[in-house]
Amino acid sequence: MDKVMSNKWVIFLYLLPATLMIGVLVYIPIAVSGYFGLFDWDGVGAMNFIGLQNYTELLTDSTFWFSARNSFYLALFSTLALVVYLGVALVLSSKVKGRELFRKIYLIPMLLSSVAIAQLWIRVYDPNNGFLNTFLRNIGFDNPPAWLAERDTVLFAIFVAIVWQFAGFYIIIYTAALKGISEELVEAAEIDGASPLQIATRIKVPLISGVIKTTVVLAIVGSLKYFDLIWVMTGGGPNGASEVLASYMYKEAFNRNNFGYGSAIGFALLILALLTTVVIQKITKSKESQ
């Protein structure tokens, strides 16, 4: 049996298309951008080799660390949001009437492109005519904050929009995972007198732990390189308050023509993501072995 399942030829053949494409189209650009990071280059003129100077400069660049901090906040926020997504998926997979319809409806915002989502949330947060402030004024708050204009609120405001944007993505993954749990198991637990809450937390959640682990990695890494809504809704402002790693990299490389430095930021971002993933793997592994 093992012989069939450990056939080197088959393994090679099955892995070939994916690894070849990733190797050529993802790894080579990664290497090239790491290489660009060794140069002082404006993307137009001559490239001056400066060794590791861009990378050492990063270590003392306060904007870089501030952006990294914001990116990590987003990662934390997104990871916490997974609990909510999982909760919604659990409710929608329990025996609620009309759950299929609810599920379909809940995932619809996922279909919207970033352009549409950004426009929507700009309307939500418009300080004067926006959905949110109109609502707040109606219930008696006279001076609601100008969400995207203030340092204290801008980050949180965008995070809420991002969490909303990705709700469908994670709920659909959790729903599919929960679909895979056999009905008999749940029914057996019900006969034993388990409450829906107990069934959810003691049976369903442990059974899909592999998928949950994957989503944690996806959420964290996805947050670290997140760009879209932040760029459209604030451009990293006001005064850099909502700058994240990807927006900072974009600004350096494409707006300020510091192509070498921008590439270095991109490469550093990759390293951070890699380290974080390894740490997550370590933590979850040690928990499993306990």
Partner: peptide, 16 residues
């Protein structure tokens, strides 16, 4: 200047 000007884009500002 209008409330929340630092968070408004030019198109939005012109709308007012």
């Amino acid at each position: 200047f209008i409330n929340g000007f630092n968070g408004l884009g030019n198109d939005e500002a012109k709308g007012y």
